[in-house]
Design a protein around this nucleic acid. Sequence first.
DNA 1: TGCCTGAAAACTGTTGACAGTTTTTGTGCC
DNA 2: GGCACAAAAACTGTCAACAGTTTTCAGGCA
Lengths: 252, 252
Amino acid sequence: MNEVDGNSAPEMVTALRIRRTETLTSLVRKELERMIVSGELKAGDRLNESALAERLGVSRGPIREACRGLEQSRLVEVVVNRGTFVRQISLQDALDIYDVRSALFGAAGEALATRITSAQLATLSALVEAMARAADDIDAYYPLNVDYHARLVEFAGNARLVTTYRSLAQELHLFRRRGLVSEGSMAVSNREHRAILEALAVRDAARAGTLMREHILAGKKRLLKLTESEQAGAAAPALDFQRRRRRLAAGT
Amino acid sequence: MNEVDGNSAPEMVTALRIRRTETLTSLVRKELERMIVSGELKAGDRLNESALAERLGVSRGPIREACRGLEQSRLVEVVVNRGTFVRQISLQDALDIYDVRSALFGAAGEALATRITSAQLATLSALVEAMARAADDIDAYYPLNVDYHARLVEFAGNARLVTTYRSLAQELHLFRRRGLVSEGSMAVSNREHRAILEALAVRDAARAGTLMREHILAGKKRLLKLTESEQAGAAAPALDFQRRRRRLAAGT
DNA sequence: TGCCTGAAAACTGTTGACAGTTTTTGTGCC
DNA sequence: GGCACAAAAACTGTCAACAGTTTTCAGGCA
């Protein structure tokens, strides 16, 4: 439970230049998003408004506004009079998200198969090849993998699908940094990537949809297996938002 | 901290009660949401912070925070230095949303078919019957219809699916109040409702999924037909957010 | 030691004010 | 009347201060 506290100089002063098109709130929001997704802020951490304000060189207003936005996109949870906390998602939450992502990814596949261009096929093909080459290097493989999935969804041509999918994917980042891609799975995963590509190339919508749905579900199963094998270790401690009040019992 | 019993009026007490669990921001947010979904605030309208603050009896802070939340849930759009506007969604946006909803609703059907209880079946059945009885009364039919869809998704037992679906459904409210349910469609619609119910009753996941997907797509088609027949009328004016600046061309 | 108690510290919720930008209004000129 | 232009009004962005709540902590007591 580390609290962000301010001991670095205001970094956001330089951003004053850009302030014509971006408001402080949106800049703060992006910065907080980055900190959360990168793991700099861990699940359960509290976002101390004053400390953040000082650290980023702004007042508490923009910080609070940014937090409200983050709350809506489910990256943080706000508790009245106690503050905003980086959201801690349970295994069940993560599994639920996988199911929803699976449905969306499948729908993207079906739509994409009927409209994919040869240029898009080439782009996707290049990514699959690059992943094959990076087969042993997780740090090289991972961003390519993310890119491949993002492109598949973008190319489907449905703007709302993209934002919905992206928001869910981002939320999954809250569930244990890394661990999602284990070494052995990369080869399996890329075999699936290639199969998807082939289905798209022949415009087989049903097959592309099925493959893409199952590709996400495979990720879900991997996560499940991973956590099961971790069962020996410490159980994941859920953040206790409803903290008991020690005194003041007379009320109720 | 003890109970202040002295001379407080009852309404004061309830107000303070609420303040314990709800912040002004969340109350304002709900009120704005209501105003938007009910059509009291129309698409394209600007939310004047000072006016709203005075009307709701709060300062601008909570209003601004609420707007940031609304922005994230895509009910409003914020333009720097110009204000926040009730979002105007295009026909294309609405169609996109229908497709995403269709995928989610279908996924809900597949999941639900494997786990539905007899109590849930009874609840759904009662709703279908009630809709059949309300066949000629849109005002009675509509809320039942909304309820039926909501239950189908809730009963699927996936919390994220519920919130995602609900958010998309709410966003659709931005697209022309009413008009979604035309008289003739009610009978057709309820025939589909009954077919879905039957597939669920026999635990046919594939069939339930397909029927539910198609049920939403039927709504999409109805919307399309409706707007086509409206083509003779005025074209939908898209809100011009990127308003041209008449002067001030030097500054870049 | 353990644990209650109550005051101090820390922090969030809310407000009102000020600064900078956009929009409106008013005026002179053709 | 129509148009350019500048002053004023209106509004958003940001901040600093105050109020109320939660958390911490030192001291007393069994």
